[in-house]
Simulated assay, not measured.
Amino acid sequence: MHTVFRIDEVRKLDKKSPLYQVDLKLTSDDDQQLRQLTDRVRQETSGSTGWYRMGKLLLKISQFDKAEELYTALLEQVSNDSDKADIYHQLGWLKDDQGQYKEATSFYKMSLEIKRKTLPEDHPSLAPIYGNIGQVYKNIGDYSKALEFYEKAHKIKEKALPSNHPDLAISYGNIGQVYNRMGDYSKALEFYEKAHQIFEKALPSNHPHLATSYNNIGGVYKNMGDYSKALEFYEKSHKIYEKALPPNHPSLATSYNNIGGVYKNMGDYSKALEFYEKSLKIREKALPPNHPSLATSYNNIGMAYSGKGDYSKALEFYEKAHKIYEEALPPNHPSLAISYGNIGEVYNNMGNYSKALSFLEKALTIQQKTLPPSHPHIKETIRRINNVKKV
């Protein structure tokens, strides 16, 4: 192991000086927490050669263009199907992270097609591909399809892994996410808590997966209206992300965004705007300009301005978000429905009722196609439409 230090203490030299003194302590080879962390890093950046490991590392730190350049070059050099399948899989992961879901699905399925020619259906190496295809379907709003692929992945992992393995926890978390999107919050919480129990036992306390777990549980509590509980879990998550990730990492942006969402729901729109803008600042640096997560930031900032009563500013940000959603997502995606609904609500508040009704009805059409009939979003949109019609 190379030389690694722990930060022991940080203190300012004096009140007038901008300099700080940092006291470091040399770690030992038998440092258990450090060993767990480095072992996990090695697992997450594993590969047959240094170039493959480099590609995974570039993806982990969100250097998408460099990763794509590397994988494209590797693809031109390899001749055997096994290596091609691995590269297609990584390119699928890359495209998914960039919000290019059609391309992501194509690469993942090319990888799956190659592997299924030579492997049994329950082979462990198929699980990541099934899981990632499930993630793409989740991102495009096809939740039944997402659940199908996530469950295929989970079935393989349950056979192949010990019951406390972190990858099994990730699988529980993925299934929980789908139930959360479908509005089945009790089921979502059940799977998230299964995941969290494993993470707490298997990972060091500052591992990003543990932060994601806190974040997921916080999201369910927010959806259930328990905002104090949601904020508690979001802040636990954020504390880990700040320590473990670079300052421009998309997960940190998501964390700021989620905390902002709680403040928005609590009616503290100024505080919400503060966190939403922190999220946007990271996303504008880290993501391509047409990425759906960037649209989410614009949309949320629009909601904060709407809450403050600044409807023209709200409409400006809602329309920025909507433009990206229309380009990046399929026409029946739930996020597009939310976007239509938000624009409709602003027009309603501005007194333009015909435009409000038009956008709200577009939102309802999508929601009725993609969500269960009892989903809270459908009920809310119907309520809004009825209120506009009463005016």
Rank of each mutant, 00 (worst) to 15 (best):
A321G: 15
L91D: 02
V4D: 05
Y227F: 14
I338F: 13
D14E: 08
D86V: 01
Y150P: 04
T49R: 06
H2D: 12
H322D: 14
L119I: 07
R116I: 13
D23Q: 14
P334Q: 03
R383N: 10
N299R: 14
D39R: 08
I87W: 00
V136R: 01
E345G: 06
A304E: 08
D14W: 05
E113R: 11
T105N: 15
H209M: 06
A153S: 13
S48Y: 14
Y263G: 03
G55L: 04
Y256N: 00
K187M: 11
L252S: 02
I114W: 00
Y71S: 01
D167R: 07
K60S: 13
A67Y: 04
S171E: 02
A321F: 04
E68W: 05
I129C: 02
E193I: 06
L126H: 03
V10A: 09
N132A: 06
I378V: 07
A337P: 10
L19T: 15
N139H: 09
E44I: 07
H375N: 15
Y137W: 09
K390M: 13
Y71G: 01
E190L: 09
V78M: 05
A104W: 02
R35W: 12
S28Q: 14
Y179H: 13
E200D: 07
Y269P: 01
S125W: 00
G92D: 04
V220T: 09
I240S: 00
E103L: 12
D97H: 05
L13K: 13
L329R: 03
S293Y: 07
F317Y: 12
E380L: 15
V78G: 04
D142A: 11
A146I: 07
H333W: 02
G134T: 11
N174K: 09
N386L: 14
F233R: 02
S312H: 15
E319K: 04
L357F: 11
Q33S: 10
S339P: 05
G307M: 04
H209E: 08
N300V: 01
S82N: 12
V262R: 04
K308T: 12
K389T: 08
K379D: 12
R383Q: 13
S62I: 01
Y172M: 14
I61F: 10
I61E: 08
K355Y: 03
P247I: 09
S82Y: 08
F191N: 12
L203P: 01
A230H: 05
V262G: 00
K155H: 08
P376N: 12
L75I: 10
I87G: 00
T105K: 09
I301M: 03
Y256V: 07
I382R: 15
S306P: 09
E103A: 14
G141W: 00
Y269W: 01
T72G: 13
Y214T: 03
K12F: 11
K362W: 15
Y214G: 07
R53C: 15
G351N: 15
K369P: 02
A67I: 00
Y52G: 01
V78Y: 03
L147F: 00
L70K: 00
M1C: 15
D96R: 06
E151C: 03
F107Q: 08
L189R: 03
L24A: 03
E121H: 11
I133A: 00
D310K: 12
T118Y: 10
A304F: 06
D81I: 04
L287A: 02
K222F: 10
